[in-house]
Design a protein around this nucleic acid. Structure first.
Length: 493
RNA sequence: GGCAUCGUGGCCGAGUGGCUAGGCAAGGCUCUGCAAAAGCUUGUACAGCGGUUCGAAUCCGCUCGAUGCCUCCA
């Protein structure tokens, strides 16, 4: 029996505003689409948090035994910089600035994106489609929307008729907006605007002569509109209706709202069963933005090359930090917060090491079943990783107590505890043990063991100046000695 | 200006009508040659002001503040 049969998962659905029991369309299978990055610059940290949340969700769904098709696109066609702009898109603009081919920009930043995600130990999605690879599919949807009367062509561009759509459907239901309010609130239409209403959005945009990213179409040379690629690609790979659609909170409006409109106009029904939105990452209490300098790249955190943080932090520490907050909450990144997470993370990892060498006894003081149940209950409650982590620390405490000889654990419980912890820590949360274990570090541990032996000798002779010198000198090198009942161990920071 | 979300102890961050979140930091204790590590233990927090209720951090109203969206944005 698959785990999902005994673990009823609840998901907060942004569309209904409620936690709902998750029931996939097809038993045992989950289709999940997440809006990916626009690859016109280095992936930024906030972006990583969103994708990390869905990576964790992907991991947990798999852990429960679901067969998941996870589609995360790469936006390489660019979005319009501005409605009133000359129709140049982000990628094209960047390309001109750097004297590069647009696809060269795309390639460079796609590689950067993958590099960073790999450092964070992301699982690759099942399909990672690109917008430029699905121009034909996008044009097909435009034709369909035009044919159904929800689009209109002006001057080589095609727009979605939001007002017309709203007569039959409900535009704004995801973000809780009403079309009348929006119309009442909009600024003046610029004189040259081709749109019938400011709420209308582009399905196809005519390319001006200087525009380098362009494709021929029934409406002339141009490029697809902002929201269409996700509709095209999610439909192609997951169907007209699929289980989960995710993305950052900021995409709720207008992007996801428009996706719903396009799908409803084209297929006549809502495309997504569970909408999930990950919340924003702030830094030192403020929005992260390049323009204000309140910004840091993931790579700069790993190397420490920045003037915001006091030291470098490993990808796993950053991941742990992010997992300590619920994905629907705003999370604030700061030096203090990362420092605190780093210590907690190491304590957790050291407990896992301790567990491996723990001696077993005849009976167990640690009742595993209720503990394990609480771990699953946390995750089943809309992927509550902070509560899961609180439970993991309960296990840490018990492991240390057993090590101290104050409690004991049976052979079979130790095995089960190990398996459960590994499943949650590595498989679900995607954390990684700081890797050592190569030839150099074997030599290092040999050396440290030798020093420990010398120190023990000194201590036995009450030659404390010598023993303290060994301890303190090693500490300066980042090697910490830990005296315990069973002798001295060490850890390298 | 409009819409939305949020405001929890020194810091980060769960919870959301009555019952310990957790991590980090701090104090005390155990262990230790002294420390560190580890364990035990302490702290009585829910922006402010009203209201509902037997009871509210949790529901309602207002005020203040923050963040997001309203224009590409995770």
């Amino acid at each position: 029996m698959p785990l999902y049969d005994i673990q009823p998962l609840k998901i907060y659905n942004s569309l209904s505003g409620k936690k709902e029991v998750f029931e996939p369309l097809n038993e045992g299978h989950v289709g999940m689409y997440v809006c990916g990055p626009t690859v016109y610059s280095n992936v930024h940290l906030g972006n990583c948090r969103t994708f990390m949340s869905f990576d964790m969700i992907f991991r947990y769904l798999r852990h429960l035994g679901y067969k998941v098709r996870y589609v995360r696109n790469i936006t390489d066609a660019g979005h319009l910089v501005d409605d009133a702009d000359d129709g140049e898109d982000k990628i094209a603009k960047r390309a001109r600035l750097e004297q590069l081919e647009p696809m060269e920009v795309v390639q460079r930043y796609t590689v950067d994106f993958h590099n960073i995600l790999e450092k964070f130990n992301f699982l690759p999605p099942s399909i990672e489609p690109t917008a430029t690879g699905h121009i034909i599919e996008q044009m097909e949807i435009i034709k369909d929307i035009l044919q159904k009367g929800y689009g209109y062509e002006v001057n080589g561009s095609v727009y979605f008729d939001v007002v017309k759509f709203n007569e039959t459907f409900q535009y704004g239901k995801l973000s809780g907006r009403k079309l009348e309010d929006m119309i009442a609130n909009t600024r003046e239409l610029t004189a040259q605007d081709e749109k019938k209403s400011p709420q209308d959005f582009a399905l196809w945009k005519k390319a001006e002569p200087q525009h380098i990213m362009r494709w021929p179409s029934p409406w002339g040379d141009g490029f697809p509109g902002w929201h269409l690629e996700c509709t095209a690609m999610s439909t192609k790979y997951l169907g007209e209706t699929f289980d989960i659609h995710g993305g950052g909170m900021d995409l709720k409006f207008p992007h996801h709202e428009c996706e719903i409109a396009q799908a409803e106009a084209s297929f006549g029904h809502s495309p997504v069963r569970y909408w999930m939105h990950a919340n924003m990452l702030t830094m030192n209490g403020k929005k992260m933005a390049k323009s204000t300098g309140n910004n840091i790249l993931p790579g700069e955190i790993f190397t420490g090359e920045n003037n915001i943080l006091s030291k470098p932090f490993s990808p796993s520490v950053v991941r742990f930090f992010m997992m300590q907050a619920h994905y629907t909450s705003i999370l604030d990144l700061s030096n203090d917060a990362l420092l605190a997470s780093e210590k907690g993370f190491h304590r957790l990892m050291e407990a896992l090491d301790t567990l491996e060498v723990l001696e077993t006894g005849r009976k167990s003081d640690f009742d595993l079943e209720p503990w394990k149940r609480q771990c699953y209950e946390a995750m089943n409650d809309d992927f509550n990783t902070p509560v899961l982590i609180a439970n993991l620390f309960e296990a840490v405490k018990r492991i240390n107590l057993i090590k101290e000889g104050k409690e004991s654990i049976s052979q079979s419980d130790k095995l089960e505890l190990t398996q459960t912890l590994n499943a949650f820590v590595f498989e679900v949360l995607g954390l990684e043990q700081q890797k050592e274990g190569n030839g150099a570090s074997n030599k290092l541990s040999g050396v440290v063991e030798l020093l420990i032996a010398l120190r023990d000798e000194a201590r036995a002779n009450k030659d404390f100046p010598t023993s303290d010198k060994i301890r303190d000198q090693l500490a300066i090198l980042g090697i910490q000695l830990k005296d315990g009942k069973e002798g001295t161990t060490f850890s390298v920071s």
